[in-house]
Design a binder for these strands. Structure first.
Lengths: 230, 230
DNA sequence: GAACGCGCTAACGTATGCAATCGCGTGCCG
DNA sequence: CGGCACGCGATTGCATACGTTAGCGCGTTC
């Protein structure tokens, strides 16, 4: 079904379809356009994406590896469900990983990385608490900079892998009214600790940051369960 | 090309081809039948496995996710290389993960799990230091039992993910003459700590175990580099 | 009227053919 | 004699057809 005559032959990049499919399906899941437990059929998705089953299948496999989809006993792949137990396990692990990243960053962050973090803090401070999308983006950049400063790619990968399934819970910690200001204060304290090369302090701040984040997300999950019960 | 008339229709199991391909390729890599950097071509592998490119491709993708293969700039998938830097990063992370697993196991291992660990220790004690394959198997079972006792599937997954790339270095820590006895002693101390619910001690023993393992593997890598230089 | 069995259909695993891309070699031109 | 450009071969990405299996509904029989 060679429908793709739209793309001029000069377009050398021509994004791999599997990557496009992956991105679009993942976005749809993160926007909660599919319910947890909803079946994901190769043929349906392929048709709605306008591509064949082959790249669609590749995308689904990757999403399964990342934990956004799971194999249901006799129904194929479905959107994964994240309950309180999962959340607790994720944060138990994330706590020690963020602590390690903060410690390593305090030990070996470059001056350029510290400047990047400072610049990020300023932008966070200038951003309105209402512009949640911008805050989320800045938060993500902030943490990624800290992760990379750890100089440990396995740690970076593990931290990213842990954050992916969190997208299954609608909203983020920034939906909580006091969170933006609190996060900014904790981020500032973390950069201070990194700049002073105080590894223990950096680890302590990171752990505090995680505990607060876990609390907010658990609360959110409980609220959602209440709504569904009604 | 319906070549597979060999399999009687009664054979219901007939492992999916993609899984077979994955297992066989992974085994071959772990046995070092491919050199690091060696190209892995879909068509070649498919032909040598007697299957088509589709399941072969699936297997290669999974191996890439797991870090045994990596995408080389302009040459497709090649067998991954593990240098000293990688090893150091892996162990820096594994240290805190094993420590967490040991701590959680000490907190919440069931009596049945502790019995399983004790039984494993006995079998380790009865196994000759020369039977390296058996020791490796027992060691793997031992650690997996501790991991599961942590009641944290994300931690279990992360620990497994970290161990996979270690297979790229020929031999294991058990190739070292003193290691079997040392490992057994450390395993025994770990089970003692778990049984006494001493979380700090469990964590300390796990960290010591990791440090020794890292030292042996770094030495092994250095020896290999020396051999190649000659 | 109920239970068991048979066939139909939906879904996925697998095979294979086709197309697009990229590296590399060769030949031509400056 | 060297560099650039064109073309060819190798390799992977994508599409699609086929086979197989399992679940479900309908019919038949006791």
């Amino acid at each position: 079904m060679g429908v793709r005559t739209e793309r001029p032959p000069t377009s050398r990049g021509s994004t791999p379809l599997a990557r496009q499919a992956y991105t679009r399906i993942r976005d749809a899941i993160e926007r909660h356009q599919y319910q947890p437990g909803e079946r994901m059929r190769e043929a349906d998705l392929a048709k709605s994406l306008g591509i064949s089953r082959t790249p669609t299948r590749d995308a689904l496999k990757q999403l399964e590896v990342e934990g956004l989809l799971e194999a249901a006993p006799r129904r194929g792949l479905v959107v994964a469900t994240l309950d309180q137990q999962h959340l607790t396990e994720i944060y138990a692990l994330r706590d020690v990983l963020e602590a390690l990243a903060a410690r390593l960053a305090a030990r070996q962050a470059s001056e350029a990385e510290i400047s990047t973090l400072r610049a990020n803090l300023e932008r966070q401070a200038e951003t309105s608490s209402d512009d949640i999308d911008a805050l989320i983006r800045l938060n993500s950049q902030f943490h990624n900079t800290v992760y990379r400063a750890s100089r440990n790619r396995y740690l970076v990968d593990a931290l990213h892998a842990l954050q992916t399934p969190l997208a299954l819970v609608p909203g983020t910690t920034y939906s909580d009214p006091g969170r933006p200001a609190q996060a900014l204060r904790q981020h500032q304290r973390l950069v201070d600790a990194i700049e002073q090369r105080d590894q223990d302090q950096a680890e302590a701040v990171a752990r505090e940051h995680m505990r607060d984040g876990e609390r907010i997300r658990l609360q959110r999950l409980a609220d959602l369960a209440d709504e569904l019960d009604r």
